[in-house]
Design a protein around this nucleic acid. Structure first.
Lengths: 331, 331
DNA sequence: TTGAAAGCGCTACCAT
DNA sequence: ATGGTAGCGCTTTCAA
């Protein structure tokens, strides 16, 4: 049996309610007593009984994260960051990789105080889930029943194009996933198209390469398609971290120098961008910020009862590294 | 406030201790009463209060999984399988991606009944962690203080070589990570070497390609090194799922047909092997089995107090798919 | 076969 | 500033 407050009370020669107060740093306990009790508690290796605490407080101080698709580096990074961020608060996080419904079941059983869900397109009957829930994904046009943390993908593409234009680029290609099932990819792609249009830049068909996936190799092989139809663009926008990694490799293997021959800017903003063969200039909401916002928001959701359930669109940031330069003709 | 057994008791017109018994399917309650209570409970949407249950039972029925390095497809698959497997038991799983010490702290706080740890080389002061703990990795030569679930890598390599020999191969290459920091990779590599020796097969230096990593691209570029020093081997043993995926691609891009020109057998035994460009014949402990064994063992560890703390070495299985055939000369 | 009551470890309120 | 005590929801004797 592990140490309880009664044990401590016995040793300290006070009542166990005093111990409770002292341990919770109540102002109602004299500093001396408090210190003494704290010392004894530490010495006896006291650990509060979580079950007992929550039985009375009705709070678990736990948030559950549902992550049904274990994959992508970017998401893995985000999970880690969220985990870091939560550790800074008074909450703890538990993770579930089970299918959504099962995860919700589990979390309800554990009575977590709030839930973070990574998923694009869920239709939960929200009424049956009174636990505060936050989604990371793409906000629906018609509004979601729960808050959605979202990145402003259009803005990101605008900023990327703007940046390239200022460097002198006009022939810009987009390499990314355009398959219609993933709303987030669609937003990026459309954002690119819009930005080009707004700047009166022509878009050649061959400069729109659909990778059909988000993997490294998808980017790698997209380069071959690009190469098949000269002239090459002077700049490429890569749709994701992995894709851009593949693009770099493909380019290098064809002796195309970055950024001398061609510039590349990637979507996603994670520190790993700096570790690629060529440190990639990138655009996107920094993961740290994403993590902060997500954690911040669930906790708000938990602690303030009547909160505006509308989500947030986060502003992207362009991080300059080593993959962009003026186009060759201007050199 | 959600429904409690007292609420049910009130409606059912019995005492709440009877309700408790009925809900726990005690033989001390008449079937009629039990059925009635069950029905009412369901109707009222009763969910047992987890905190209350564990406060009295001293058991959480939770096992914690510590997974400090989110990456590799194979591990992700294993995590998912373990999660599936645990769902079949009366236990639940929570996952932590935090650093080991922090994860242990969290799990101790939640008072999980057992812990699964993915990690090669940990030195825990086990005495301070009285929670049953199981590791998945490589057993230390000098014995670990806690059980280790381990795959028999030497055996795997032996079986792979044996299989290739029976098909008629003699010139066999190994492509894998040989960097000395990862014990599991070392075991595979040494296993290969031993198996070749035991069968009196020569090993050319050029046929031992150190990928220096476990990624897709590491395998892909290893092929180029192999190609630089003809003659080619007639068969390749790939060190991991990702590496082998890269090998296939590299070979294909050089118009080398699998399995006509060259055979390839990969380490790791996950279903995804069948989805590669060429369904890969592979050797390794099937993930499902690995997951079963791991889950099985922690639960045993939890429920049976004095258990043999020595781990298990699991036997690999060779799964034939479409990537192996007799060498070209014999065709 | 059912009911009453103790108690798990803790917080919070009321009394001292 | 400290102590006494009710009660959170449940399991588990013990009694009826």
């Amino acid at each position: 049996m592990s140490t309880t407050i009664k044990d401590i009370a016995l040793v300290a020669g006070v009542s166990y309610s005093t111990v409770s107060k002292a341990l919770n740093n109540s102002p109602l306990v004299k500093k001396d007593t408090k210190d003494k009790i704290m010392a004894i508690a530490k010495e006896m290796g006291y650990e509060p009984n979580f079950a007992a605490q929550r039985l009375v407080s009705k709070k678990t101080k736990m948030v559950g994260l549902i992550w049904p698709t274990i994959e992508r580096v970017v998401l893995a990074t985000l999970v880690t960051k969220i985990s870091d961020e939560i550790r800074r608060t008074s909450y703890s996080m538990i993770l579930s990789v089970d299918p959504i419904e099962i995860s919700l079941e589990t979390f309800r059983k554990f009575q977590v105080d709030g839930i973070i869900l990574f998923e694009e397109d869920v239709d939960l009957k929200i009424d049956t889930h009174p636990i505060p829930l936050l989604t990371y994904g793409v906000s629906k046009k018609d509004g979601s029943p729960y808050p959605v943390i979202d990145a402003n993908h259009e803005q990101a593409m605008h900023d990327a194009i703007q940046y390239l234009i200022e460097l002198g680029h006009r022939r810009i290609a987009y390499i990314g996933d355009m398959s219609p099932k993933d709303p987030m990819q669609i937003e990026k792609y459309n954002g690119f198209l819009q930005a080009m249009k707004k700047n009166n830049l022509p878009v050649e068909n061959h400069h729109l390469v659909n990778t059909g996936g988000l993997d490294w190799y998808d980017g790698y092989s997209a380069v071959k398609k690009l190469l098949a139809h000269p002239p090459l663009p002077t700049a490429i926008v890569g749709g994701s971290y992995d894709i851009s990694g593949g693009i770099i490799r493909g380019l290098k293997e064809n002796q195309i120098d970055i950024p001398t021959d061609i510039s590349i800017i990637s979507y996603d903003n994670i520190p790993q961008m700096a570790n690629l063969e060529i440190p990639l200039t990138s655009i996107g909401v920094p993961v740290d910020q994403l993590a902060k916002e997500i954690v911040h928001t669930v906790i708000q959701l938990i602690e303030e009862q009547n909160l505006d359930p509308s989500g947030k669109k986060l502003q992207p940031i362009l991080t300059e590294r080593a993959s962009c330069a003026p186009p060759p003709s201007l050199n």
